[in-house]
Design a protein around this nucleic acid. Structure first.
Lengths: 171, 171
DNA sequence: CTGCATGCAAACCCTTTGCATTGGG
DNA sequence: CCCAATGCAAAGGGTTTGCATGCAG
């Protein structure tokens, strides 16, 4: 069932789940896939908005905190449920870090097969390092070939956590 | 306080925590650091033995199951406590995989800054890929320099999870 | 005798689920 | 009107902690 509704912060990710964006009377609208399977409801919209507002990984409770400001009646369960749904739809991806307990959620970048995080072992801060520089690109290409030739393992994506000491902590 | 006790499966890792190994009457013995801080007790020995017996990552309950065979009275808590102690001492390291719940534990290889796991997104099997081939080495060297020059981030180690489809699943 | 390490069970944290209710299509 | 999505609270899974006891030094 198709539906049309306004969007104020239209990002590239909307294309993934909304299929079509249009302008009507000077405002962005989205023609959505509001099907039985996937209805873009307020809680889901808010979770997505929170993820989009920050560039990187957030824990579920961080998302919940910010989401409550945008939509106070939202519940914890909806946040988790939205996240899992988004993961299923390839909109969100989950990252874990070594011995840390909480999972981190972030928007999936369709273009990068690789996600890289710099994890400071001193102050515990985590920073994205998603840039596809030439080292990363070359490594990806080579390792992908090696794995296929040697192990018949067909690489689809890579998670990388780089541990070390960040600039502030070195001072 | 020094103590001497026999060891049957003496591995290189013992050097890390035991400092000295000796032969007495044709058998390996270890002269240990049985201090207040770190006493090599039966449960700890067993956990270590289990980790050594398998090459790769194990979950806590997998470790517990095998440990019980070696030492039936062992408790869950001791397994976890040993693991955390070993982690603190740099003997064990913890790895997490994307959205999976359980942590995996494995002996830390002092030589490799990089640990790489091949994770099959179909059958969920995880395989070590610790070999330090030239692609990995070069990438490590380059990325380490880049990070330092650009972000003043001093790399100490890297965790990598490579997702994809394994040989059996492709068939 | 002293105090660390243990085993047990209960607590804990994060995440998921059951259920009655709501509200959009 | 129907059924998927919600919020609440309770359950669940994995890990940690409190406590009485055991045991090595």
């Amino acid at each position: 069932m198709l539906s049309i509704y306004p969007l104020d912060n239209f990002g590239f990710l909307d294309i993934i789940y909304l299929k079509i964006k249009i302008i009507f009377k000077g405002r962005w609208y989205a023609m959505g896939i509001n099907s039985k399977e996937f209805r873009m409801t307020k809680p889901r919209e808010v979770v997505l908005a929170v993820l989009r507002s920050r560039k990187g990984h957030l824990t579920a409770d961080e998302i919940f905190e910010v989401a409550k400001e945008l939509y106070p009646s939202i519940g914890f369960a909806s946040v988790y449920r939205s996240l899992r749904l988004f993961e299923k739809y390839g909109i969100v991806e989950v990252v874990s870090f070594g011995n840390r307990r909480k999972k981190h959620y972030q928007l999936k970048n369709r273009r990068t097969k690789v996600k890289i995080h710099l994890v400071c072992t001193n102050c515990a801060k985590i920073k994205d390092f998603s840039e596809r520089n030439k080292e990363v690109k070359r490594f990806l290409k080579e390792i992908s070939e090696t794995l296929y030739n040697k192990y018949k393992f067909k690489l689809s994506s890579v998670d990388m956590q780089i541990f070390g000491e960040c600039e502030e902590c070195k001072k």
